[in-house]
């Protein structure tokens, strides 16, 4: 009995610690947003936001990430109810959606780079690439995390440790989703003057 008590206490500690970590990450992004806001108009003769963003493309990217956040949330609920095979399918869906999002982002970066618009061109592009790529690096970390977590769902039973790790992963993934909403608004929507 004392062991389960200890592990519950431990998981509540880990959850609080993870919340605090997410808040530090939030400040990290907030700083990058502030930098972007300051440098947004410093295009130094290069392209401005409305010249280079392809809105329909970004919208698809956004919907993919939102959908992955949804599947991750439902996967956690399923895992908590011991519906392992459903949880597994939903996590695989999360993985596929996350990878697709990342692939689209990379495609966008490479396209811009090939058109001659790199982070070296102006302060605006430096800030843009850094902010969006930092989010992309977080998504990459999330995908690696998910790959480590996934094998546990190919067994007939899942332990409480896996559930609590899935909870943390899901918090992380939702957090990245929220950050993306801000990127979508601050970088793409406000940047695109045609809207």
């Amino acid at each position: 009995m004392s062991h389960t008590l200890a592990s519950t206490q431990n998981s509540s500690k880990v959850q609080l610690g993870f919340w605090i970590y997410l808040m530090t990450d939030c400040i990290l992004f907030a700083t990058l947003f502030a930098v972007y806001a300051v440098l947004r108009n410093n295009t130094a003769g290069g392209p401005s936001a409305s010249d280079i963003f392809d809105m329909p493309f970004i919208l698809v990217e956004t919907l993919l990430l939102l959908a992955s956040s949804f599947t991750a949330g439902i996967a956690l609920l399923a895992a908590k109810k011991s519906m392992i095979s459903l949880a597994r399918k939903l996590l695989i869906a999360t993985l596929v959606l996350g990878v697709s999002f990342l692939a689209m982002e990379l495609y966008e970066f490479i396209k811009m780079y090939n058109e001659g618009h790199s982070w070296r061109e102006s302060a605006f592009l430096s800030a843009y690439f850094t902010l969006v790529a930092t989010h992309g690096l977080h998504i990459t970390a999330g995908i690696i995390w998910l790959l480590v977590l996934l094998p546990k769902f190919f067994r007939s039973k899942i332990d409480s440790l896996t559930i609590s790790r899935l909870t943390l992963f899901s918090m992380f993934w939702h957090f990245l989703d929220v950050v993306w909403i801000f990127i979508f608004t601050v970088v793409y929507l406000i940047g695109d003057k045609t809207l």
Partner: peptide, 21 residues
């Protein structure tokens, strides 16, 4: 370090960088 490694322009005096930031 991005300014120094990858040639970004956050704090440079050219291409729109802002040292005071």
């Amino acid at each position: 370090s991005l300014d120094r490694l990858l040639g970004t322009n956050f704090f440079t005096t050219t291409l729109g960088g802002d040292p005071m930031m």
